[in-house]
Amino acid sequence: MRFHLKVWRQEGPEAPGRFFDYDVDDVIPEMSLLEMLDKLNEELIKKGTPPIVFESDCREGICGTCGMVVNGSAHGPQPKTTTCEIRMRHFQDGETITIEPFRAAAFPVQKDLLVERAGLDKVIQAGGYTSAYTGTHADANAILVPKDDQEYAMDAAACIGCGACVAACPNSSAMLFVAAKIAHLGTLPQGMPEEPKRALSMTEVMQEEGFGACSNHFECQAVCPKGIQVETIARLNRAFLKASLKRRA
């Protein structure tokens, strides 16, 4: 297969960026999008051009580092798929593919497709601890958790912190990310006691780190590679309200 790429390139955080055009030939349909970029980078290096900078680690959809905007969608047009999992057979032979970094004031571009996502780490830090015992691990069934709660917490825990929800949100809000963490920890006995504190602090730090507020556009849900649902945001809103009333009292 062959593709025409329009790739956003930018020298540094302050430098103006723009799209560069590249042609890639002999792409194997089974290649992932990142492997196609690897191939292009090897060709660029041979030509003495600096390679395109992008992040990746696991390349199997579990670490959350590889996000980029492909053809106008965070993580590309394939639903519930990370950028590293997109296969080139999903595109038309000869297609023009545009690749841009995630865009948000809270995710400043460092170079080319690489963005700084430390804001999400700050939000996680603001979440604090869970009251679990340390030391030798507890018996597997020492604390019984209803099946539905297990499932619900597990679905929310699938969030890999990739930031696609922020990139897709017209307000660059991190609400789906925060909601996933709150739903995951607050549904389990170990995380439940700190839920009120967590709901207040994580959303406050979310704002401090430059993420917007939620207008319920639901673009996040459409791009989330792990299928996190906006229903978790309603749950977060309830948790916030309860915590605020408690703080008053």
Binding site: V69, A105, C169, S172, G210, G212, Q221
Partner: peptide
Amino acid sequence: NTKAAPTKGTFVTYKEA
């Protein structure tokens, strides 16, 4: 919200909004 999202990129496709 406008300050948090000065641009959403060059090719934006809306899916649910």
